[in-house]
Nucleic acid binder design. Structure first.
Lengths: 135, 135
DNA sequence: CTTGACCTTGGATATTACTTCAAGGTTTAT
DNA sequence: ATAAACCTTGAAGTAATATCCAAGGTCAAG
């Protein structure tokens, strides 16, 4: 059994984060000590591991909740249920990448247009672009 | 002179957004009518154009404020001042792209490991990965 | 028995960029 | 003259993910 600070240290997160996860129904300590301290079991620890792995894969906490529902009811769920979530997330991430690449391109084009030396900004091509050009 | 709704319509944003910009010191209507209506001039309109172009290039409102300070005091600023901001933003965006690409890769690898058919999730490789593997 | 490190709770704060609301005043068209 | 469409303000709400704080209880060591 781990106290909140112990489990937090194990995973290099803060005790506040664990309390936050509990408040949001994503990870509840299985037990409490007689004095009210949270006590986490090995199962709780595995669940936290799952949560943090999913987070590292880019899932939001809401999405992780969905994944956990499947994980916990594995025997009544199919691979399709899981894969649908992953693929949905994947295309969302790909859209975001494309949007950022559009922005990257715009910024590069702004940056490349300007030498960036100590001459007056009066005729700075970057500013000129922002004044009028549609990006 | 444009009223708030007129200017908003011109740029396909909401009147509320313009009021929000004013509250945040990013764009203030130059005048008010006798009854208190905001009245925007052509200069205000140009400034809004600048703001929206910068937004399209991925800048936050705080960053746009910085750009506007340079834009308005052009004669006392250099190209370097401007380019520093752009390049700073550019590398920030590139970092975000890399992080998303890391996530994309992780998701792809999860997705590819699973056929996603109607077999039980009991042995779903995606769930197995999330249970233990560090991504 | 005291000190320090830990734990509890609820609530506030932070970020970003708005949106919505309530209650009321103004303008324009018919 | 009245209805529709506009405008005003300040305050509160939203999403996402925590972090910080205050006031107080608990536990282990010396």
């Amino acid at each position: 059994m781990y106290k909140v600070g112990e489990l937090a240290t194990l995973f290099n997160i803060s005790a506040d984060t664990l309390r936050f996860y509990e408040k949001n129904g994503i990870l509840k300590a299985s037990d409490r000590s007689s004095s009210g301290y949270r006590l986490y079991t090995e199962v709780d620890k595995d669940r936290l591991d799952f949560i943090l792995n999913a987070k590292a894969a880019g899932f939001t906490l809401a999405e992780i909740s969905e994944l956990l529902v499947i994980e916990v009811n594995k025997d009544q769920r199919t691979c399709r249920d899981t894969k649908v979530l992953i693929d949905h997330k994947l295309s969302h991430v790909q859209e975001k990448i494309q949007e950022l690449q559009r922005i990257e391109k715009a910024l590069k084009s702004l940056s490349d247009s300007c030498i960036g030396d100590s001459t007056s900004a009066l005729y700075c091509t970057i500013l000129e672009s922002l004044e009028s050009k549609k990006i």
